[in-house]
Design a protein around this nucleic acid. Sequence first.
DNA 1: GCCTTGAAGTTACCG
DNA 2: ACCGGTAACTTCAAGGCG
Length: 790
Amino acid sequence: MPIIEFWILDVSYDVVGGVPEVRMWGVDRAGRKIVVLDRGFRPYFYVVVDEHRGEYEEALRKALSAYTLLGVEAVEKKYFGKPVKAYKLTLTNPRLVPRARESAARLKFVRDVLEADIRFYMRYMVDNGVLPSTWHLAEVEEADKPRQWRVDAVYLAKRPPEPVEDDRSIPPLKTLAFDIECYNRYGEPDPERDPVIIIGVAEEEGVKLYTADNHSDRELLRSFTEHVKRSDPDIIVGYNSNRFDWPYLLERASKNHLKLAVTRAGGQPAPSVYGHISVTGRANVDLYDYAEEIYEVKVKSLENVAEYLGVMRRDERTIIDPNLIYRYWDDPEKRPILLRYAEDDVKSTYGLAGKILPFGIELSSIVGLTLDQVFAASVGNRVEWHLIRQAYRYGELVPNRVERRYETYRGAIVLKPKPGVHENIAVIDFSSMYPNIMIRYNISPDTYVPPGEEVDESEVWIAPEVGHRFRKSPPGFYKKVLERLLEARRRIKEKLRELDPETPEYRILDERQRALKVIANATYGYCGWSGARWYKREVAEATTAWGRMLIKKTIEYARKIGLEVIYGDTDSVFVNYDPEKVEELIRYVEEKLGFDVKVDKVYKKVFFTEAKKRYCGLLEDGRIDVVGLEAVRGDWAEISKEVQEKVIEIILREGDPWKAVEYVKKVIEDLRSGRVPLEKLIIWKTLTKDIEDYEVDAPHVVAAKQLAEAGYRVRRGMKIGYIVTRKGGEKVSSRAKPFFLVKTIDEVDVDYYIRRQIIPAALRILSYFGVKEEHILGGGRQASLIDFLG
DNA sequence: GCCTTGAAGTTACCG
DNA sequence: ACCGGTAACTTCAAGGCG
């Protein structure tokens, strides 16, 4: 019986001849594309009962007899840490589980029906410890390959594959990026009417552009399908491909009576969980899903994200107005520009894959979702799948999803900053504060002691302020899970110290420790999310309560030993950098409070206004940090952000507010005389709800309505870019216009930009130094010292 | 009826 | 469909004044 090693790319299942078959698609050590089948697993779920009784068993058999029931097994499990009795009901056909669940739930003695909503192939992976994006060993026999399957070999597993410990190497995976352009003469392209005109494909060997025959995309779609089949990629990446490219291609294929048979099972891509499109046997990754999480990039266009990740510079690429694509297509002179644009897009997409996939691969293997699902899944779902995996290891039943009403609880402490410029300031912060609090005080739904229950005080931790109690032992679910994550991360970081940062191994492990941190840190947020299976308000509430206690004690001690506390937020304190005292403070927190803290950074200078969560500082290496201020917000015009950034730079580097005033005046002059490009005046705001649901006509809502009227598809989640013009009413919103409808600076309400954008952004910093609006608007060169003192 | 004021609605940030 | 805390903008309606 041969033993093979393979790396899992995708997992699917089908029912063949009444038998469910789990299919693990992957790559073996020799680089062959293979699929390993397991026909030995059956779906099941649990019913919780008060006690095991023969008559219950009989009743269950009877009630479920119509659903190919294979067995009823009395089992002892744990539910929220408490031993419970249950029956494990095993069926043959996964598709019958939902109905079987209903029937079981109707029986009077059934207290709970659990785990009936775990998808079959996930059930298989969880129970057998099978991890996507990880090497496995499997004892197999070779099986016949169905004709349409596009793999080198099909194996039948004797038993479930086992993951190979400590081998995080990644096989050579063939990646294909694609991107489509559509004909859009009538606004938003409509697959009912408008053909696909270009499909760009980028791979290691280069870029290939497929084009439509004028307005017929039949051959184009065929060529693309053939290309993918020939090229046989392991990973397909796109940018917004789950929501746009794939649905569009599928619709066009259907119009043309074609099949986009690009999966390794021979079928078409199909909608799947978390709004992603599944290309069976391959990982179909939409990089936009990851881009959405890059908060530094405000408008998440492909160009912006590619620039941010160092994949392609904006000034090196062809940029055309996407609304005018059809003109470039129809005009033979301009068509080459469009082709270059398409080429740059698909090249960027391919480049992004190299930057993003290594993290996705590690995240996928940690939370146990396939590579293509892990990006599509929300943070909450990623955390939850990680928890479900762990629950299985500990014999814990998985709670059902339930609708709960939303409740609030108190969060962290934010200190009022001491306004002004401070020199030599150390920022001390707690390492992974919330995870460590949950571990230290054993905070978990299963260790929670409700108010009525009598327990000796010595046996519980009592949360400050809120009084919630948690048993000190045994270790709770969250504690075990978080300890395991942090421990794994600690081990990796240790190993990283011995590795050369230039090696692929270093990169992989560095991404892994990052993924571990992300999941650990998101677990607190998860436990306070009312949609979570393991939700418990008291858990989240106690965690923040202990957080407040810790930061308060830290501040108190800092003051006691003569450190001045300038500011603090949640898990950080800003103090004057007196190395000995800072050392002493750290020792206090570590020894007396029992938590890890470190000097995160040291500012040569840091500036605060009276506002919390907004400051800027000059670091020791000369870089400037801007936090919370307009300059780092996506909803201010570029011109205002630029001005504020420059003002901050002048203040921190030269300490001369009046020089900054001169600079601001100059920018205003430039704006008045039309020397500022229109792009710098665009204000971007997200449409967070459907347009009809808005109660007030905010400027971006009015702009969005204009877009809708002009025939554009306006959807929730879109960023609306508008410019404030002169024509219209009093209200700003009545003068807001979609940016690309504004053609010249003459239409712009320059005064709005000066008084409501540039001046506020500049004064946010400068007003502390006595600068007033008049100083910037006034004609005089420079205000006097008297102004400053007065 | 006009002007001021503050609440409400809205977005995006911090940790 | 991860949390609460926060600043700051725009709109809108209530309240004050005459």
